[in-house]
């Protein structure tokens, strides 16, 4: 029952942060960051099973693994960027959070470029 552990860690972190916030805001922020990181690492360790299933499905459908790894990379970038942006927002640094999101969006587009080019190539080949 990992969900109980995760919820327990989350609740303990939240209660600690609320108590500490009134006396020391910085420590409260650090507590919330550590809690978030702990939960994030807990969830990431389980992702490998999902990735394995996806890879098996892709190999069954004869999908080029290059595309699948690109999509998985994009999802990973989105998750990590979201986590970082949320932490920054919690710390009251909304502008840094926006910049993180911007960088993530650019990275996603860069990773998607080969797929876009592949589609363009195929469409251009279909047109005589």
């Amino acid at each position: 029952m990992e969900i109980l552990q995760i919820v327990g860690i989350g609740l303990i972190g939240a209660i600690l942060a609320v108590f500490v916030k009134e006396r020391n805001k910085e420590i409260a922020l650090l507590i919330s960051m550590a809690t978030g990181l702990l939960i994030f690492l807990f969830a990431v360790s389980k992702v490998s099973a999902v990735v394995k299933v996806l890879e098996e499905l892709a190999s069954r459908a004869n999908i080029n693994m290059f595309y699948l790894t690109t999509v998985l990379k994009i999802i990973g970038i989105a998750y990590i960027a979201e986590f970082g942006a949320q932490v920054c927002k919690d710390a009251g640094e909304g502008s840094i959070a926006t910049k993180i999101e911007l960088a993530a969006k650019i990275l996603v587009m860069v990773l998607a470029l080969p797929i876009i080019v592949a589609i363009l190539e195929s469409v251009l080949r279909l047109i005589p």
Partner: peptide
Amino acid sequence: LTTFIDLIMPSSSMQRFVKVVMGLFILVT
């Protein structure tokens, strides 16, 4: 596969971007 990937997509402003790339991925496959 795409429905499965759709499930694990993050729910934030990044979702739109990821969805576009997913669409491209389906298109190319």
